[in-house]
Design a protein around this nucleic acid. Sequence first.
RNA 1: CGGGGUGUAGCGCAGUUAGUUAGCGCGCAGCGUUCGGGUCGCUGAGGUCGCCGGGGCGGGACCGGCCACCCCGACCA
Length: 577
Amino acid sequence: MRYSKLFGKTKIDAPHDETSINARLLLRGGFIDKVAAGIYNLLPLGMRVFKKINRIIREEMDAVGGQELLMPSLHPIELWQKTGRDKTMDEILYKTRAGDKEFVLGPSHEETVTPLAAKFLRSYKDLPMCVYQIQTKFRNEPRAKSGLLRGREFGMKDMYSFHVSKKDLDEYYEKVKQAYLNVYHRCGLEAYVMSASGGPFSQELSHEFAIKTSAGEDTMIICKKCNLAQNLEIAEGKVTAPNEKEESEKPLKKVAAKRGPSIEEGVKLHKIPASKILKTVIYLVEDKGLMGISIRGDLTINESKVMRYFGKKIRPATPDELGKAKLAVGFISPVDNENIPFFADFSIKHLKNLCTGANEKHLDYLNANIGRDFIPKDFADFVEVKSGFECPKCGAELAEEKAIEAGNIFKLGTKYSEAFDLKFTDEAGREKYIIMGCYGIGNTRLMGTIAEASHDEKGIIWPKTVAPYNVHLVSIGASKDVIKTADELYKEMREAGIEVLYDDRDESPGKKFADADLIGIPLRIVVSARTLKEKSVEFKERRALKAELVALKSAVEKVLTEGRSPHTPFAAGEHRR
RNA sequence: CGGGGUGUAGCGCAGUUAGUUAGCGCGCAGCGUUCGGGUCGCUGAGGUCGCCGGGGCGGGACCGGCCACCCCGACCA
C-alpha cells in the first residue's frame, strides 16, 4: 500500500481530555475514528489489525473444534422474554421496533444460539458440538469509556458449546481455556486466567482472562511464586498477622474518647496499633436491613465479598439510616449492641483485647474480647486482599497488578437449555437437557488492549502477528534514484508476498519517521541517497523483540538479495538521532 | 444515575472587565526551498462560536434550559 493513497492519515494531536492511551494512539495513528462515545469507525489500517486478530482467534477456535457461523444482530424480543433477560438486562439492551414488532440488538447470543441448537441437536450422537461467530455486539454501557476498551457497539467472538454431561463440559472448558491463552500469547500479550464470580446471583463457574498492563482498569492479585491470579473482587489470601504473643483477657473498660471517626485517630488517641482496633462498617443489605461487619482495623472490607455472602445487593448505610438505628458514626461497636446483627471477618477471630467504639459519641471500649463481650453471628471472609498477603495455594507473597479483562468464559449449565427446551436423547433413550458453555472474547477490545500493553511515547509497537503491515518502506528525499529504487523494492516485496506499507510521500525525513513510529509497523526499511551510496538500505526495528524480527528480516533480505535488485549486500544499521 | 470538567475552521487551542470585519498552530490548496527525526518562506481557501430561549443599543463572552463529549464514582451476562 502506498501511504499517499491510504484512506486515513496520522495526526499530531488528540483531544487533551481523551486520556486513555489506546484511544489517543489509535486515533492519532489513523487506525480508528470516533463517531460518538463508545462508537468508532475502523479505518483501513485498523481494519487490517482487526482482521489479523480475528484470524488468530479463528485458528484457535477451529483448533478446538469450533465451527464458525453467523447469527443475526436483530433478535425478536420474544426470545429475550423467554429467559427474562429483556427485564434483567434492560438498561443495557438497545431495542428497536418496526411497526408493532419489537427487536433487541444482540448484546450476546444465548437467546439465538440455543433455539438454533434445538433445531439440530437431538441425540447424544450429535454431541458434543461447538459453534462460534465473530460479530458486532450492542450494549448500552452506562459509561462508555477508554477508547476501544468499553464501547457501546463492539466486536466480539462468542462461542457456545453443547454437551451430554457436566464432565464433558468440564473437559472441553479446559481445552477452550488453553485456546484462549494461545490467542493472547499469539497477540503478544501476557495473560492470566482468573477465577471470577458468575455474578452475585449465580453459582456458575466462570473465568476471566486478564492482560497485565499498567493502565489496566481492573486489579488482580497474583502470587509471585505459583502465579495464581485472582480478581480482586473475590481474591482470597491469608492475612499476615503482626507478631502477637498470647495475651490474657483484660477487663473491659469504657473510656472517654475525644476523636474523629477514622482508625488513625484511634491509633493516636489510645497509642495502640491499628490491628488492635475493631473496624465496624454498617451495610444496608437489600431485603434484609442493616448488617454490621467487623474487621481488623488495618484491613479493608471487600464489598463484593459482603454481597456474595448475603446473596443480595448491598451499600454502605447513610448517616441518616445509622441515626435511625441508634448507631453513633465512628463509635459503632458490636459490644453491647442489640440493635442490628453483626458479622465478623476471620481476621479478628483470635484477637484479644480490642479497642472499639462504645456506641455513643466520644466513648470507646478497651479490651473488648470475642466470646466474653460480644459474639458475632458468623465469621466469614470479608477482607480485601492486598499486596503482602499470603497466597492461599502456596503461601508465597501476593502482589497487586493492574489488568484489562479481555475475555470471559462461563459454564452455563442448563439455564438456557431449560428456557428453550434444548434436550437430547441419551444412549438409554432418556431425554435430558443439554449442558452448555459459552466463551467470549472482545476482539475490538483486544486491539485496544494490545495498544495499551505495547507502546512507547512515540506510538504503538504492534507485535508482528497483528501489525497492519510487516514492513514500512520509507523513501527519503526526492531524488530520482531514491524514488526509483524504493519503487522497485516496493514492487519486489509485494510480488514476494510481503505486506508492505510504502511511504512514498514527498515529506521531510522527520515527519516520515515520526509517522512510522506512530503507526508502529515492526520493521522499517529506509531508502535514501545515503543508503544508495552504500548500495544498501537501512533496517530499523520498531521494537526490541529480536527473535521475532530476525526471522522476518532474513526472509525479506533473502527476497531482496536473490531478486532482481542490484542493491546488495544489505547493511542493517540503526539510525542515529 | 451522582460528582467534576470541556464544547470556537478538518484537528489542537487562544479569545481579558461585553465593543468594528473572531484569532493562532497543525492540516489542506498553490509557488518556491529543504531533504536522516515533525524544514523554511510567501500566497490562499476554510467558521450557523454545541442547540434553544432571555435580558441588553450591542453577545463567542452574561442569565436560564437542553444536548454532546471527557474524567471520577455507581454499573460492567
